[in-house]
Each structure stands twice: as structure tokens, then as C-alpha cells.
Amino acid sequence: MNALLSRLNALMSPESGADRVVPPSGFTASLTMFSAGAMAFLAVFAMALSLATSRLADRWGAELARSSTVRISAPEEQMAAQTAAVVAILQTTPGVRAARALTDEEQTALLEPWFGPDLPLDTLPVPQLIEVIEDTDGFDPQGLRLRLQAEAPGAVLDDHTRWRRPLVDAANRLRTLGIMSLLLIAATTGAMITLAANAALSANAQVVSVLRLVGARDRYIANAFVRRFTLRALVGALGGTALGMISIALLPEASTAGGFLTGLGFQGVHWFWPLIVPPLAALVALIATRAAALRVLKGLT
């Protein structure tokens, strides 16, 4: 373990290897590390948001897609006959796995949040609800509507599309926003590291001049800066990611009463996803510093 730490320390040390030709750059190095850490922290949250909304969209989509409701509004004397007719139609409809009329108790329970527990259901013209469970193939809602219209005029099919679609759309949009946030965070990290690298290179014009005098190629000089900034970004991102993951882990537990917010954390293998943030931050730093270094070196004559 000590040997591993020692090797990591040697790798991270700004004074090791060819990058020693570049003088220590305390301010820009600290700035890079802090920026990478802050961005990694935000990236973990954006990732958690994106994954949570992805799960939400899947769940809403799947749960709502598998169930439908037929609502029968008919005169009291026809209610039983139309209910039986609708159930019979549903039982012979391809794509319907099960269909059953809700009992009075179940309908009372559904209305309880709005009307209280003592609702006299038998005195009110409450429609009869029939729960329809689809099989994996699903049914043809247009065809079913036509059959219901013909045989049970008071029956209306609600396949939840009008409920499901905006919810799924909202969840998908949140997921897209999460991904966009990640891309923006990566771009911002790149921009900040580019600024820091530009500042470091400009401040070291004399060093560049000496290195060129002794025959250093631009790639060699650039690599010295690239290695330094990449390592700083990696270290900063490791810290930010760790902090972000700890913060997510400390969020309140998801519960049945909880809504979207309590389900924001990572679940299962999703906990591995944030681990890609530090290497990605290092990659962004590498690309940004390399591009900045070569551009600045080209301008330094």
C-alpha cells in the first residue's frame, strides 16, 4: 500500500520527470485543481439528476403503459348490464391480460382523498371503473373504443396516454437537461483550464525561449505543461467526485411516501458512474491544455 501511495505521489509530484523544466506555477495550479474539483462535484449531481430522471421516465412510462381504465357512466338500471358487456368485450380483446370492475370499496378508497372516508357512494352517480391490465403486446385502443361505443355507449376508455405523455416528456426533458449540464460542465472545465494554461504559458515566455534555444520541440514544451495541468485536474476531480458521492449518499433515504426528490441518489451499479468523472476531467484538461499550449507556442516567436 505504501509503495502504491509512493508511486502515486511521485506521479502527482510537479517536480518529477521532464515537466521539471517548467517552473512551479502555484496560483494557476491551485486554480486548476479547485476548478476541476468544483466541476466534478457539480458533475456528480448532474449525473445523479440525469440517472434519477431516466429511472423516473422509465417507471412512469412502463407502469402507466401497462394499465388502462374503462369508465362507465350509465343510468343506474343499465350500469350492471353495461359493466358486464364491457368486461365481456375486454376479455375477448387481444392484448388485454385481465379486466375487472372495481368494487365499491375500491372506488370509495380512490375518492377518499378528495371526499373523506364517509362518502355515501350508493347515493352519488359515480361512474363504474373497470381496470384493464395489458399484456406485453398491448391492445389497439382505437379498435377497442369502437367496440365499446357499439356495445356499451356509456363506456369511455382511458388508456392514460394523456397523463403518461406529459409526465414521460417532462422526465425525458429533465434527463436531457442533466446530460446538457454534464456537457456544459465539461466545456466550462475545458475553458477554465485553457485560461489557466494560457496564463501559465504567457508567464513563462522566457522559459519557452530558453527551451527553444537548447533545441526543445514545441511538443516537448507543451507536454510539460499538459502533464502538470492534467495531473492537477485529475487530483481536483478526484476530490470533487468523492465529495459529491458522499453528499449524494447522505441524502435522505427513498421511501414509499417519498417523491422524486428522495429518489435523486444513485442506485445499484449506478454508483460506479461517477467514477468516470475524474478520468474524464483529466482527459478534458489534457485536450484543453494541449490545444492552448500549441496555440500559444505558435504565437511565441
Binding site: V21, Q206, V210
Partner: peptide, 25 residues
């Protein structure tokens, strides 16, 4: 190219009037 100039300079030793060193080394 700039790289070719660098390679060429490796074949030339230069003593600058103001010496030009890297002060941190």
C-alpha cells in the same frame, strides 16, 4: 517547420550574452 528548426538547433551550441538560464533549476 518549427520542429525541424528545433532539431537543427540541437546541432548548434549557443552562449547568449545574457546567458539565459531557467532560474528554478
Amino acid at each position: 517547420s518549427r520542429d525541424e528548426v528545433s532539431d537543427m538547433r540541437r546541432r548548434i551550441g549557443v552562449v547568449h550574452q545574457d546567458c539565459q538560464f531557467l532560474d528554478h533549476l
